[in-house]
Amino acid sequence: MRVQVDMTKCQAYGLCAEEAPEVFDLDEWGYPVLADDVVPAGQEPSVRRAVGACPAQAIKTTD
């Protein structure tokens, strides 16, 4: 699974980092930083939760 954040939509709610802290880190302004767009094995469920939790609907995944 791959993940990307549409930065034109992201509003720095930070829920992605709560749902999937192993995948989403937050910068000093609260915007997510992805170490890698490939989701580490086993992290898929938490990334799906992050996609559902994002109020800005800014997170997209592809298989």
Binding site: M7, C10, D27, W29, Y31
Partner: peptide
């Protein structure tokens, strides 16, 4: 549009 840009 993008936070890292308009904050950074």
């Amino acid at each position: 549009q993008c936070g890292p840009c308009f904050k950074g």
